[in-house]
Amino acid sequence: MKIVVCVKHVPDATADRTFTEDGTTDRDSVDSLLSELDEYAVEQALRIGESGPDDAEITYLTVGPDDAKDALRKALAMGGDSALHIDDEDIRGSDAFGTSLVLAKAIERHGFDLVVCGMASTDGGMGVLPAMLAERLGVPAVTHLDEVTVAEGSVSGRREGETASVRVHSALPAVVSVTDRCGDARYPSFKGIMAAKKKPLESLDLSGLGIEPEQVGRSAARSAVDRAVKRPPRTQGEIVADEGAGGSGLAVFLTAKKFI
């Protein structure tokens, strides 16, 4: 069984993230890392591989600049077999449509029974890529799973929606996405980190996938940012130490603000 795990290299969420002049995410000013939410996807893929079919073959896939390879190495250090890095100057500035096209072509070229994604990337965070991938690949999507099981050519899981918790089921091939509630991701062991260095990591550009430059990148983007304005940072108000009347003081504040 061929499992492809889509992972993204993202600017560290705990740093001050900014935009460049042209309104795209600034990827140079802060360190980047494997999106924490994609660690859960890696973990689930590894568990699926460990639990079931012994022919499971796990490949990580990323679309991003050269240093996005770091995300692939990190994933490989956790486990899995190989990695595929798609990098091309013309991909820069792609929106979800462009990125999903590149991912879909790469997945088709590699072949797949199951695609595993994170629930959302921690930078763009649209949470739509798995659905777009499924649409492009023409396969079902079972997304936002808190629990996921693969058995006998099918995938099933539990999805917590806004108004109901649903159990879902689909035949493979399919695209799934998993949440941060499906089980903690493992830490790479020293042995894993050493082994990762020897695992195959292939790099491809657009021509290798048969994609024309006009189909992706900023010029193909279907929406445009008019402006990105930094919100004025919140200013700290009055902070008081409780010396026995902290609750009453809070009530005075809330009354002045007309909440009481």
Binding site: R234, Q236, E238, D242, A245, S248, L250, A251
Partner: peptide, 28 residues
């Protein structure tokens, strides 16, 4: 969290919150 707070109480929530509830009841 205090960096964002318009008003903050440094204290034990098990003291502060019950007092707040009493005070709301009293004011109402």
């Amino acid at each position: 969290i205090f960096e964002l707070a318009d008003y903050g109480v440094v204290g034990d929530l098990f003291q502060v919150l019950p007092q707040l509830v009493d005070e709301i009841d009293r004011r109402r």
